[in-house]
Amino acid sequence: MTDAIVSLINAEHGARELAGTVDGGRVLVDADGFAALTGWTLKAEGWCRGEVCVPVRDRTPVAADGRIDVAGFGAALSMPTVVDAEERVVALGERADTRAAVIATGDAPDFELPDLEGRPFRFSSIGRKKKLLLAWASW
């Protein structure tokens, strides 16, 4: 078991560094840092994000020293998870049914992204106007 700086990636924040531990093929990360980046905290009720809690029977994903086994977390909540212990990188996505449910509502999800000067731009800041979202790329 080795203490390590681990990069945790998700779509909202990109790659962020966290204190963690590498144990063979397992990667564990600091629970507080994990909560700050993903919103998920282990409480008495189970894994909770905002008002939503998912009961969990098996609490072994959380190690004794307050670290979270990222693959174990992903398996417990059926969330897409990639763990590369060799590179000390972990990444989390969102479940397909969660995304599909949002798409089915027809509501436009809000988001914040930087402009080319690095200034954050929030979609909802446009307010009551018609909006054309254009996804493009240089490639």
Partner: peptide, 12 residues
Amino acid sequence: LLDREHLLGELY
């Protein structure tokens, strides 16, 4: 805007 993580792809 720059979307390195393809957040918009994920959301929409």
